[in-house]
Simulated scan of single mutants.
Amino acid sequence: MELITFEQFLQVELRAGTIIDVQPFPEARKPAYKLKIDFGELGIKKSSAQITTLYSVEELLGTQVLAVVNFPAKQVGPFMSECLVTGLHREDGAVVLVRPTEPVPNGSKLA
């Protein structure tokens, strides 16, 4: 594992946002959703997320997530992903979302 400095960590913008739209992403190589996430004053950003194993469209709508919002946009097939939703892999490979346990304002920065 490569160590980083605290200053390097501070450069990563991990922000809370609310999922406001979820669409299937059949063109993705692995099963995924196309998400629109409201980050408050930062605006709405799009993300592709491989979270179809544990989460339905209905379950994701209105859910707050934690995402990296200061990576450059990345082309994922025909879709431009503007942020990286965070999650943890279970032993079976399914992704468990990292999300606040209580509501916080959209755009809140990880402290």
Rank of each mutant, 00 (worst) to 15 (best):
Q64L: 08
L42R: 07
L60D: 00
G43C: 11
K36W: 14
D21H: 10
E91I: 10
K74I: 08
G107A: 01
V22F: 01
Q8H: 12
K36E: 15
Q64T: 00
F9H: 05
G87C: 09
A49E: 01
N70C: 04
T52F: 10
V69E: 08
P103M: 05
K36S: 15
L66W: 05
V96C: 08
Y55D: 04
V65I: 11
R99N: 14
R29M: 12
V104Q: 03
I51F: 06
E41N: 14
I19P: 04
S48I: 09
V98T: 05
G93Q: 05
D21C: 08
L97V: 01
V57R: 13
R99H: 15
K109M: 11
E13Y: 08
F71H: 10
Q23R: 11
V104A: 01
Q50Y: 07
T52N: 10
S108C: 06
P105C: 00
L84G: 14
E41G: 15
I44C: 04
L54Q: 14
I51W: 03
A94C: 02
E41L: 14
V85H: 04
Y55A: 02
A16S: 07
E41P: 13
N70M: 04
P24Y: 03
L42K: 09
V85T: 05
N106C: 01
K74F: 04
T5H: 06
T101P: 06
Q50C: 06
I4W: 14
I20L: 00
G62C: 14
A28T: 02
V65D: 00
C83R: 00
V85G: 05
C83D: 01
V68Q: 11
L84W: 12
G107P: 00
V12I: 07
T86E: 04
A28K: 03
N70F: 08
G62P: 13
Y33E: 04
L35H: 09
T52D: 09
K46Q: 12
R99W: 12
R15F: 02
T101A: 12
Q50F: 09
D21I: 02
I4K: 15
I51Y: 01
D38I: 14
H89C: 15
I51A: 04
T5Q: 03
P78L: 11
R15G: 01
F9R: 06
E82W: 03
K109D: 01
Y55H: 03
P31H: 13
A73P: 08
P105L: 02
E59M: 08
Q64M: 06
S108A: 10
Q8V: 11
I44S: 00
H89G: 15
T5C: 06
L60I: 02
L10D: 12
P72S: 13
P72Y: 03
T5M: 03
I44Q: 09
L66C: 08
R90G: 14
E13T: 07
T101M: 13
K45W: 12
L61N: 02
S81H: 09
A73C: 09
D92F: 00
V96R: 07
V22S: 02
V85E: 05
P72L: 10
T5Y: 04
A16Q: 06
P31T: 11
A94Q: 03
I37P: 00
L35W: 09
D38P: 13
